[in-house]
Computed example of a mutant assay.
Amino acid sequence: MIQRFLLALSCCLLATASLHAALVFETTTISQPAQAGDTEMVAVFRFKNTGETAEEITKLDSSCGCTVPELEKRVYQPGEAGEIKAVFTFGDRTGKQGKEIRVRTAAAPDKPVVLRLETVIPELLSVSPRALLFRSGAQQESSKSATITVSADSPLEELTAVPENDALEVSVSTHPVSGRRILTIQRPDASAPARTAINVTAKFANGVSKTVQVWVIARTQADRPADREKQAPSI
């Protein structure tokens, strides 16, 4: 008798499960490379309610504030299709990127469907090193240099290096052998601040521009701890 009851209960549960709504996505991962100058990635995840009851999407959670999901409505009838549009704003990000969106439903709130966006953002402009230190004393250098790397994905129209302080003398040249672009900074004179920046800007033919800051730090004798102790007033 007990076995018959358990068997009947199991059949009821199976029947209930078969009537349960289910959202089936065409794909849960969308990968697409970014082009030079792109500022965002747009991915559309299409789905369909393959169950026999209505399904409600209760919540969309994003792994990053830079990725915003959009949904036309929340309730989908049996056989009805829909889509989730996700916009990933790049900002200053470069290189390989992956963002996730968790789709929670009323039928399975603790078992979200994970949607993933993948892309590789090209680096339009880079400068190495990003900070140049001029030391004081016997090891004084007359100039410092950094290597400028520009993306080849889009033709370059203009490359400039503008110091934030007029006391800095800077120039951009091309290495005669390697063809690399070199940023050269002459040693700051006494009128220059101890810490200032140079804005290196690349403008491309597609109208996109990118700016990278390079910091210039001039260390004087007074910057050394021993010298600061000597200059400290007596009490």
Rank of each mutant, 00 (worst) to 15 (best):
N165R: 05
I30M: 02
F45S: 02
G95W: 06
P225N: 03
P176N: 05
E157V: 15
S191M: 01
V114M: 02
S191W: 04
G95S: 01
P109C: 02
E70V: 12
D227W: 11
A146C: 09
T27F: 04
R195A: 09
A138M: 07
S63Q: 04
V24S: 08
I198W: 02
S31I: 11
L9Q: 05
E100N: 14
S154I: 13
P78I: 10
S126L: 10
V208S: 08
I148L: 04
N49G: 13
T50K: 09
T160R: 00
K203L: 12
T29K: 02
A34L: 11
R130N: 13
K203P: 08
K73P: 13
W215N: 12
D110T: 12
P193S: 01
H175A: 05
G207V: 08
T29R: 00
N165F: 05
L117Q: 10
F134K: 01
Q97V: 13
I30D: 03
P233W: 11
A138L: 10
F204D: 00
S151H: 12
S126H: 08
L13A: 13
K230E: 06
S142E: 15
M41G: 05
E229S: 10
L125Y: 08
P112V: 08
I57T: 09
R46T: 12
A17S: 09
E83F: 13
R228D: 09
A218N: 06
P193I: 01
A138P: 07
T67K: 06
F25K: 05
R130P: 11
D166I: 13
R187L: 08
L71R: 04
D223M: 04
S128L: 06
E55P: 10
T50E: 14
Q3R: 15
P193N: 01
Q97H: 05
R187F: 08
M41V: 14
E229P: 01
E169T: 07
E26T: 09
L159G: 04
F25A: 12
